[in-house]
Design a protein around this nucleic acid. Structure first.
Lengths: 254, 254
DNA sequence: TTCTCCTATGTTAATTTCAAACATTTTATT
DNA sequence: AATAAAATGTTTGAAATTAACATAGGAGAA
């Protein structure tokens, strides 16, 4: 039996049983535990399995048990309706700035059929969505936030200070009718503020579930915005409170 | 902090970084390694993570790796072998610069299990691959090249002039044993040159099919490189010609 | 309050596993 | 046949794991 054949057998055995231990493999293939260990190191590098203490497990066996319902799947119809409305309001030839986030990601998806637009973003997920389009896309650069895709940091800020665009679409995780728009870190709100300064107009995009939440660091008051697009799942009283602060569109969303 | 809250925090931290070690968690939550270990046992039973030797990994981090889908590009096995070799040569704690391209994309995929590395790239596809890792990733910023994913332009160049890294991994489309490394546009070769200047060492990564091709704009001569990793599908005469110009590793790629 | 029980955590020691270095065998190449 | 390269085994010290026991801190009852 060749080493590569043995590794293939180990791989299929791991996938079949979900779990193996080194002692067992050592006996099964009549090789020393050290050799098995070396095989497992190679197979782990290829992503075929995950090494554990004393053995290895199949990555697939556990992924089936933990279905990750990410927040991306929440309020999709609302986000879609909001971003659709936003796209309609972008004139040909405009330069726009897109915040990081799932709502703006939807917006980017709706943008890919447009042309003659310059789109600037600090989110690599948005950039990836637009890479196959005819859009002129500019990425700010900066430190990549793990598991998120946003770019932040001094480099991002420096770039934002050097540009000017027609419109900024702001995403938000927390909106309070009195405290305004807030974000979880100083860093994020700093970048959002700079984006507002770089833009002629700022429009807030957020589904109504974000309302009545407060986070740590203030971005701006609702009065500072030029517009707000959200869905219609808000009470009359809320509508009144919002509309007296900012020009708002309540789109139908689900 | 209650035990259950700590476990939730551990869970989200594992999912955020993809990988944690016990010592690190012990310090982070100010509890003994034994307590962390007990937490990890519970969380593993819930399928929230997979315990490894010395820590735990997120089950999700491995589903994204899926080394089974990338059949679209040519010479996958060669590229994989080349990037594997390259990864082995990166010391812990290093800062590296990754060129845009499919070979460096493979390299990025092999890097996601590493930590304590700073990785700088001008390709959003590479950045996307590394977003769920524990790596410190920095994106250069610049104009997005449609259908490619590379970032180029004045902004990219300005950033590259402001940094210094330990090692640069250069990808290439055309290598000639006399003309050296060339690229199709002035813009691209300019960025590559700046990357070389920003790095202590430059290593060329390219499968052997790239040899004996010339493109428009010169990047560098083979002698300017500190190393070259390619596959072994080259003739003896070629080996001789290459080796007298640059330190080279010919990895097995079939 | 004071006592008791129970959970959570820390500590220690013994066991197991891991990883590095070196030695040996096998395989491939010239 | 000679040599190099790859694969495997062995040894050894370091590291992680586990189990067992000890301690601290609440929650609830008398």
């Amino acid at each position: 039996m060749t080493p590569s054949q043995r590794r293939k057998d180990i791989t299929s055995h791991v996938h079949a049983t979900g779990k193996v231990d080194i002692e067992q493999l050592s006996e099964m293939f009549h090789v020393s535990p050290m050799t098995v260990r070396r095989d497992l190191v190679l197979l782990e590098q290829d992503g075929k399995l995950i090494r554990t203490h004393g053995g290895a497990v199949s990555p697939r066996s556990l992924t089936l048990e933990t279905p990750f319902i990410s927040k991306e799947t929440k309020h999709v119809t609302e986000k879609r309706a909001i971003s659709k409305k936003a796209v309609q309001m972008i004139p040909e030839g405009a330069s726009i700035l897109l915040d990081s986030g799932t709502t703006t990601l939807e917006l980017a998806r709706h943008l890919v059929n447009r042309k003659d637009l310059t789109v600037i973003t600090n989110d690599i997920n948005l950039a990836s969505e637009m890479v196959n389009s005819a859009l002129h896309v500019i990425v700010t650069g900066g430190d990549l936030q793990n598991n998120v895709g946003a770019l932040l940091g001094a480099q991002t800020q420096e770039f934002l200070r050097s540009i000017h665009v027609d419109r900024f679409f702001l995403g938000a995780h927390a909106i309070d009718l009195h405290a305004g728009v807030t974000s979880p870190t100083l860093e994020k709100s700093m970048v959002k503020k700079l984006m507002m300064e770089a833009a002629e107009e700022t429009w807030l995009l957020a589904d109504s579930s974000k309302i009545h939440h407060k986070a740590f660091s203030k971005v701006c008051a609702l009065q500072d915005l030029d517009g707000f697009i959200t869905d219609d799942r808000v009470s009359k009283e809320e509508v009144r409170l919002i509309e007296q602060q900012v020009k708002t569109f309540f789109v139908e969303g689900g």
